[in-house]
Amino acid sequence: MNDLDLMAGFRAGVAPPVPGALDAARDRLMSEAAGPDRRRGRLRFRHLAPVAAAVAAVVTVSSLLLRPSAPGTPSAEAAAVLRLAAAGARGAPALAARPDQFVYIHSIQGGATFHFDTANGVETFTPPVERERWDWSSVDGTRGAHIRQKSLEPGKDEPGADWEQAFPPCTTDRVTDCDSDVGYPRDLPTDAAAMRERLYGTPRGDNPADQGAFTTIGDIMRSHYVTPDAAAAMFEAAATIPGVTLVPGAVDTAGRQGVAVSRLERGSRRELIFEEGTYRYLGEREVATADHPAAPEGAVISYRVQLEVAIVDRTKQLP
């Protein structure tokens, strides 16, 4: 028995919906789906020839896939930095790795704590505490993962900030508490157009498409080994995302100086940071803007500096 078994049993006996509750919910949905004018049109549509229906279906698919993007283009300065970063990465040799090896990522990171006080409804902000982190993830996703974290400010950090855990591989397709993330994705596009399509195609919940594409770059870089050519394609693609701008001045992250390109989200701006001079990818930050619900404007909400990425034979092994 472990604590997840305990959660699986917690409120397992909750009552099913009272009779009629789901019917009412379905009625609300269906009356919205019917719409004021749609019903007539739909009925007529169903009497059309099957060919017309097939054509309509094709049109629908493309309209779902090709979402309109927000107006605007990235700023010229931001695009220039991203192209320099791409040029620096392009053509460099990729790390060799066997499927049974592990991707090792060593980083320094910090994340703010938000505490929601249910008594008064106020959310409070505690600035990030710096931590060192080591991630090992299976090259092909079949051998699990391992994380080690150590607080660099133990006096200020919460108890339990130092931790280490092995995440076992998934042995069947429906086992929870297991890990199947591929540490070394081999299918990342290496040209900008295909990468752009990939970034826009990644599901991002309800976020706008441009924001989703930009956020996906940080997500991919954070927990995977990305070959230099794929990274170059990613930065070239980023240079085409509307709303990307250059952050004025140098950005200091965990003592490293860099230049940052950023994109505004609701409540914060997300930054990708490159080393000054070399334009090597350094890491990322999230900084609160004036409309953030809890953090003051300009406060760093989270950051991460990538120190080393390597391929090793086993989890817990250092390169």
Binding site: D3, L4, L6, M7, A8, F10, R11, D135, I147, F167, C170, R174, V175, T176, D177, C178, D179, S180, D181, P203, R204, G205, D206, N207, D219, R222, S223
Partner: peptide
């Protein structure tokens, strides 16, 4: 709750909450 009660896998939770697996 998504892992323990809804029994989603890590990648499914990542997709549900729009956050990275890490």
């Amino acid at each position: 709750t998504l892992v323990g009660q809804a029994q989603l896998s890590y990648p499914e939770v990542a997709r549900a909450l729009d956050i990275p697996v890490g």
